[in-house]
Every structure is written in C-alpha cells, then in structure tokens.
Amino acid sequence: MRKVIYTGLIIALCWFAEDCARAAELRVPQNAVAGQPLSIGTSGSGTLYLVGPGQVIKKEFKSGGSVDIKGEELRSAGRWIAVVRGDSNRSQVFWVKPGKPGKLNFLARPSRVPVARPNVISGVTFIFDQYQNLILDPTPVNFNLSVGGAGTTKTVTSREGVAWIDSASAPKAGAAQFVASVDDTSVARVVQQVAADPCERSFRMHVAGHTAQNIIVETDPIRDCSGNPVPDGTIVTFIQTDKTGKSTVDARIKKDTARAELPASDNATITMAAGVVLGNELHVGGR
C-alpha cells in the first residue's frame, strides 16, 4: 500500500512539474503600456498570436526565450489574449494600459453666444494617449477662456477619461479663445461672444446730409447696454412717412453705424427700429 501511495505521489509531482514547465512556455507582462516595448516569455518553437482590442500581432519564435514587441506595434490599450501555437498550445489574458496624454478631444459649445450670460459655454475634454486610447486615470486639465488677452483659467481633474466645465460668457464681445490643455498638449476652439440687442437709450439717429433728391440719416454708434458694438450686418429699418406715402430702408450696421438715404421731403417723420428696439424720431422739412 505504501508503495502504491509513493508511486502515486511521484506521478503527481511529475504531473505538477510538467505543468509548471508548460506554464513557463508563456509569460505575459503585468504592467504593459501602449506604445512601450513588451517582452513575452516563451519556450520551444511555434507562433505567438497577440490578439488585442484593435489589432492582432503574429510572431514566429524558434529557440524559446522571449519574443520582443516594439513600442509602436503595441498600440491598443485594454484586454489582450496571448496565444502560443507550436510544441504546445497555451493562451493567457493580459492587460495593456494607455500611455501618456497625447491627444485631446475638446468639445466646446456653443460656437456663438451672447455676452454676459451665466453658464452658457461648456467645454468637455476626453483625454487620449497618442494611440487614441482613453486615459481613465485622473488627469488635470486646464481650461482657459479669454477674449483679447483677458480671461480665466480653471483646472479640472478628469474622471474616467473626461473633464468638463461650464463657464459664463464674458461681458466683452469678441472671439474668445477657449483652450484645453494637458501637459504640453492643447487644443483651441473659438467661441464668438456677440453683443446683445441695441440699448434703447443710446439708439439714436441724426441727419447726416442732403443730396439733391435725398436726405441722409445716420445712427450714432449702436451699442448694447454693456457698451459692446452691435454686430455689423444687423438690420436697422428706417421709416419715413410723409404725404407721398411711406418709404423704408432696411439698412445694415457697418462699422457700428447704420445709414440710409431717404427721399427729400418738405414735411416728414422718420423713425427707426432694430428688431424690437425703437430709436428716436426725427422730423424733417417744414413746420
């Protein structure tokens, strides 16, 4: 009986040893990083397949030892399967982590926004390494929003690959530079901050001149109530009423003012409007 037990133990030991020996045929790394070289331990000869989330790498090996994978070959982060086909068939799962931040996807919204509005601008940044792997580790992201050099910076640490902020628009109109950056990687977007409607108290016109048949009226510089010039191209409607009827000109603001030529009249009333905002009234001619 003792002999039988002894023989059984010997067999079990050999089996375990054989298994250990086989296990040594495929050694996968524990801390692989995308973009960095990798070494896979093998023995004997055969073919090594590395099946990753976005690629498959195939390597032939003959004398055992380790199979080297170059950094630029290992591009995908995530769950990989290493399979050896040859003297023996083995497979194992290993993980590859993303590399350093190398690319940002920055979604800045909206592209145009009225001035001085709270929480109207949003910036969302997804952080990737140079091989487009989402970096899930917390990473500080700097958001900078500035118009004409003056602006604000805020640092937000990403959670599960994404960092976001919302921000008020500045009181000053203009093309705001909205920049997201991580280390030396940055992406810029433009958020156009535009003036609001004309301010009624400063929306005034005057007679700027006469020609043989026309009277020329022109507005003072048209600004919103924060002092920003109302964007060029905004329609200002001039309406002249006299005994011959009504004459209208839909003029466009150019360089802060709008100007119109209306028929000369010996007794006319001229009004103007931009959207729902009314300007002053002029009387021209007799009376």
């Binding site: 060029d232 011959t244 009827g245 009504k246 004459s247 209208t248 000109v249 466009r252 028929p263």
Partner: peptide, 30 residues
C-alpha cells in the same frame, strides 16, 4: 453679403388700371 441695400420709396395702396387694389411704390438701388 449685406449689399445691395434697396430702399422702398413712396409706398401707398391704390387702384390700378383695372380697378384692382395694389400696393405701389418705387425701388431704389442704393
């Protein structure tokens, strides 16, 4: 483009030759 600006002058509602009601006036290309 914001141009051209076309003024609409002397607008009035009248009857035309056939007696129909029309809005008349003049367009001025500024």
């Amino acid at each position: 483009s914001a141009d051209p600006v076309i003024a609409v002058l002397h607008q009035r509602i009248e009857k035309d030759l056939t007696g129909r009601t029309v809005l008349k006036g003049e367009l001025l290309n500024e």
